[in-house]
Nucleic acid binder design. Structure first.
Lengths: 367, 367
DNA sequence: CTGAAAGCGCTAACAT
DNA sequence: ATGTTAGCGCTTTCAG
């Protein structure tokens, strides 16, 4: 039917306008601000519009309003399971608000991160920084140019949403204390990490209040390998391994368990291990890991929610971070203290290869 | 210095042009097509440009060229570890080509997927479908509107990149055969999955060639829970569990291991288990999972690479899928056959769960 | 090699 | 309530 003349490409408001016998601006209004056009004409326009298969061109709209309806989500490493749930939360929330998300993967490199930011900066209306490698100062500068919110990190003057590290850690320590452990070790994550600082601080305070001896290892990478390294140090220490440890995150906790098991030390029975985050894998390892569950998905949602509020003109209100509750998920990697702190590990002999020796305490499930 | 008059917002080519004493078009050329402007003027323009902090506005460029330099990446479930590596590959490759990626999470829902596609369609130059829930016909239709490539699925007439399921499966079966297993069971994934079909077919063929008996379970969800359910059925079967199984994917394999272990059956020693994909968790479970490593990252890269080739005008060349090599990673979940096939499992007691009624061995080539 | 000018598709005053 | 008319910032003929 419709003879759109010689025009090529998808139909525009002009095509619709012509076909419906109205002005282009009326078509624009029909979609951009319903109510400012009479019911009948609106109906007719819509009819023509979808007969022609018209769809607004977001670029054109963006150019004229300078609102792209896009936000960038930067993650330090897409491959790291912690980010999966965050991405889901952010993506879902953005979609709900009609925004689209540009995902950038920093691949743990500050350079890559800067470049990625560079690329998206002129396009997006806001940025969510999930695990940035950049210094506070850079982030603060960036935040002056564009609405920005950072996850799991507290940068003065910048919006942020964080886990309630203090309470989460507190629960973990209480749990361990309740199981009869009186000397705890914290397996430190990366030195530069704000979250690590917050966690170790909370760890010490809780230990102090509950009259438990506390100690922290040196800093290690927040990975399985980092956990393994930390565990080896503990095993080699003169005092031998402690009866209970809390790791910076689940990945490290898993590394600790692995190293312990390789050395013939039984997780839970000999040494209780607690992680932080509650990533998917944590329930799949043996024994399943007791961990402080960070509200990953909620953090993503909250971040986008508040970011968009600012985008829409709300006051940044960045004095205080949004802190989301964490909860302890008790699984099989923690148990009552059985061993005297003196007896060193049984086998210092290392079973080369994979963790065969694992004496699984079957206590699975989440009591 | 520069008095950009009353203009507000970031500097444009007009500001740069004025400041450098040239025409806007010259500034445009300087960046859009170097070489068509004299070295000196170009230098001066660049100098002015970054003194003013000029940055091209991608929207404006997109509007006039109708090239947004954005591609959409749709994943069925961001939370599923298989996608992590794919996303990384796709993202990295896109970035290298100066493209930005819009990440959409279908959350396992066809409806969400359609809506998401709807939202990004008018913005992107191409689409990568990673695990779509939509029927072939819909995908084919979509592919006519925009360059599109699908991962791990073969849709006639549509570009696609897949794992070499046949060879990967072949390796797995050979491995198991070499360990003395002569009767293998394939744990089926989702019924609608193209990959599942390809894998079970390859499984049967390999078994046939190597003179091993093969059988496949009923279809189950490609998750840990699905694997657990499948394992329960095997445990309940009159024949008892087989001595070796290959699962549709790692998640299911892990579920199988878990159920087996809970029933007191030793993985590797009693039953060898092989997975497919090689997601991160596979090396973390106990025992670490032997699996067919799918080239996840490479698939993401290849997809974007070829998608962009089409975007740049290459012929779609979609007769044949790009097939990427898989390789077998042998870990601790497989071992020499030790047990006679007669002895039934210890725990026939069924822990009430999601597993449904009777166990019907799916139409199988027996052999 | 560079300038002038006409769009790209949509929005937003400013009329009417 | 609807039409007119400028732009938004960049690219791209077409001249010179």
């Amino acid at each position: 039917m419709a003879d759109r003349g010689t025009r090529r490409g998808p139909p525009t408001i002009y095509d619709v306008a012509a076909e419906a016998g109205v002005a282009p601006s009326t078509v624009s209004r029909t979609f951009a601000r319903p109510g400012r056009v009479s019911a009948e004409t609106a109906a007719r326009i819509r009819e023509v519009a979808d007969r022609l298969g018209y769809r607004a061109n977001p670029m054109a709209r963006a150019l004229s309003t300078s609102q792209s309806r896009m936000v960038a989500l930067m993650v330090a490493d897409v491959t790291n399971p912690v980010f999966a749930a965050m991405i889901r939360g952010a993506q879902a929330q953005a979609a709900e608000d009609g925004f689209v998300v540009l995902l950038e993967d920093a691949r743990e490199s500050g350079a890559v991160e800067r470049e990625a930011l560079e690329r998206v900066l002129p396009v997006v209306e806001g940025i969510v920084l999930g695990g940035s490698r950049m210094p506070d100062s850079t982030i603060r500068t960036l935040a002056k140019q564009v609405p920005l919110i950072v996850l799991n990190r507290d940068v003065a003057g910048v919006l942020s949403v964080v886990t309630d590290n203090a309470r989460g850690m507190r629960r973990a320590v209480e749990h361990l204390g309740g199981l009869g452990h009186d000397s705890l070790v914290y397996v430190s994550g990366p030195e530069a990490s704000w979250a690590d600082g917050a966690r170790v601080r909370a760890f010490r305070e809780a230990g102090h209040e509950l009259q438990l001896a506390t100690r922290a290892t040196r800093h290690h990478a927040p990975t399985v390998a980092g956990g393994v390294a930390a565990a080896r140090e503990m095993l080699d220490a003169a005092t031998g391994p402690p009866t209970a440890v809390v790791a910076y995150n689940d990945l490290m906790a898993i590394g600790v368990m692995r190293a312990l098991q390789d050395a013939g030390v039984a997780v839970a029975d000999d040494v209780s291990v607690v992680g932080f985050d509650d990533i998917l894998v944590s329930q799949l390892v043996s024994p399943p890991l007791t961990t402080v569950a960070a509200p990953l998905r909620a953090m993503g949602e909250t971040a986008v929610q508040n970011l968009l509020a600012v985008v829409r003109g709300a006051q940044p209100h960045a004095e205080r971070a949004f802190v989301l509750p964490a909860r302890l998920v008790v699984r099989g990697s923690t148990a009552h203290r059985r061993r005297k702190r003196t007896s060193p590990a049984l086998g210092t002999t290392r079973v080369s290869g994979s963790a065969e020796s694992a004496s699984r305490s079957t206590s699975s499930g989440e009591r």
